[in-house]
Nucleic acid binder design. Structure first.
Lengths: 221, 221
DNA sequence: TTTCACTATTTTGCATACAGAAGATCTTGT
DNA sequence: ACAAGATCTTCTGTATGCAAAATAGTGAAA
C-alpha cells in the first residue's frame, strides 16, 4: 500500500528509477506483463538502457507495494493470485470502494460531479468505439474520479493500489465489444446512486458493482 | 500499501535491506524517530555497518509505503503530517478499522477470540506495570489480532500500513500511566462489541474507539 | 536408468566509484 | 554591510565489480 502512498507529484525530470517503476506499473495494469511472469533484472536493465541498480530499486519498490512478489527462490514475479487470494483481494477492494462511494456521495460538489460525468462520457465513447485499450484507461480514470471525489487522498491512494494489483486480472474480462458496453452501462446505475446523495444507496450500489466485477473476473481467471 | 503488501514470511537469514527496513520501521512506529526528521543515507549506512546501497533500497521501500517521504529538496524524512493530513489519514483508518471490526465479528472463531483476549491481557498487564514501551507493543499486537481475525491478510496488511504511518503520532499520546490504563480499558468495550457477534455494533464501537484515539492524538500533535 | 556428487554458470546482494546537481561557504565589488 | 558571483563541499543517482548463493549441467557409480 505501500504501498502505496500519497504520491509525490514530481515536476522534475524523472530519475531512471521512476521511469522504470512507472513503465512497469503501466505494463502490469494493462496486462502486458502476465501474472506469474518473471522479471529479469539484467534484461530490464538492458531494455531501459540503465544499469541494474535503478532496476533493482524499482523492483524493490514495486514489491513493497505488493504489485510484484519475491519468488520462493530467485527472481521477482508479477503477483499471481489464485481464486482464494483473488477473492480476498476483491473483498478488500469491495470494502474500500464502498467506503469511497459513500464518502463521495456525501461530499459531492459541482466540480466532482462534472468530473465523474466527464469520465463516464469517455467510457461510453471508448466502449461504443470498441477500443479496448482506450476503455481500460477510461475505466481507470472513471474510478479515479470517484476516489478523488472523497476529498481524501489517502483513501484514494489505497483504492488505487488495489486497482493496480488487480489490474491484470480485471483486464482479462474485457474481451468483446459487448463486455465494454455492459461495463459502461453498469456505471450508469452507480453514478445515479452516488449522485442521489443518499450515501447508503451509493455504498450499496458500489458493492453490487464490485460483486459483479468479481464474478466476471472469476470467470476468466 | 503498500505497501504495503501481503508480506513474505521469511524464515531465511534476513538481508541487510530487510534488517534496515525493519529496524527503521520499528523505530518509527515507537516514535524513536521523530516525524520530520531527516534520514541520512551515509549515517545510516555507518550505523548498520552496511554500504549506502542497501540503505538506499530500504529507504526507497519505506518511501513507497508512505512511511517516509521524499523531501522537497534533498533527503528523505519521516513523514510529517499536519492536522489536516492527520485527519484525512485517520478518516481512512477509521473506515478500514471499522470494516475490520465488522468482518472480525462475523467470522469470529474460538481461536481468534482467544487470541484477542490474550492480547488484551498483555495490554492490561503492560498498562498496570506502567511500562510504556511494552504497552505500545502490546497495543499494536492487540489491533493486529483483530485484523488477523478478519481472515483476510490483504485487509490486515492495509490496516497495518496505516497503523505504521500514524505510529509516531499515536505514540505521543501515551505519556502517563493513566493514559495507558485508559487505553487498555477502552479496549474492553470494543472487545465486548466484537464478541457480541453483532457486526454492526462491532463496527460502530470501533468507529468510536478510533474517533477517541484521533481526538487524543490531535491534542498532542 | 537413476541418483548422487561435483563443477560450471547464472543471479543476487552488496560495496565502491564517480559524475552531476544542490547547497553551503567564501570572496569581491558596490 | 550586503548582494552577486565564484568556488568548494556534500549529496544523490547510477554504473561497475565482486563474492557468495542458487541453479543448472555433467559425469560417474550403483
Amino acid at each position: 500500500m505501500a504501498s502505496g502512498s500519497a504520491r509525490q507529484d514530481d515536476r522534475q525530470r524523472p530519475s531512471a528509477v521512476q521511469r522504470i517503476e512507472q513503465a512497469l506499473l503501466e505494463e502490469i495494469s494493462v496486462g502486458a506483463l502476465e501474472p506469474g511472469q518473471r522479471l529479469d533484472e539484467a534484461g530490464l536493465a538492458e531494455r531501459f538502457g540503465a544499469s541494474r541498480t535503478p532496476v533493482r530499486e524499482a523492483l524493490s519498490r514495486l514489491t513493497a507495494q505488493g504489485v510484484l512478489v519475491q519468488g520462493e527462490r530467485r527472481g521477482v514475479f508479477v503477483a499471481e493470485y489464485g481464486r482464494e487470494e483473488l477473492s480476498q483481494i476483491f473483498e478488500a477492494m469491495h470494502e474500500i470502494e464502498a467506503a469511497c462511494a459513500r464518502i463521495a456521495a456525501q461530499r459531492l460538489t459541482l466540480l466532482t460531479r462534472s468530473e465523474i460525468e466527464a469520465a463516464q462520457a469517455e467510457c461510453v465513447k471508448a466502449a461504443e468505439a470498441g477500443d479496448r485499450g482506450a476503455y481500460l484507461r477510461a475505466n481507470e480514470a472513471f474510478h479515479q474520479t470517484i476516489y478523488a471525489a472523497t476529498g481524501n487522498p489517502y483513501i484514494a491512494e489505497m483504492a488505487s493500489e488495489f486497482r493496480r494489483r488487480t489490474g491484470p486480472f480485471r483486464a482479462k474480462k474485457f474481451a468483446t465489444h459487448q463486455d465494454l458496453l455492459a461495463s459502461a452501462r453498469s456505471h450508469e446505475d452507480l453514478i445515479r446512486d452516488i449522485f442521489s446523495e443518499d450515501s447508503t444507496a451509493a455504498s450499496r450500489s458500489m458493492r453490487s458493482h464490485m460483486t459483479a466485477s468479481f464474478i466476471e473476473t472469476l470467470k476468466v481467471n
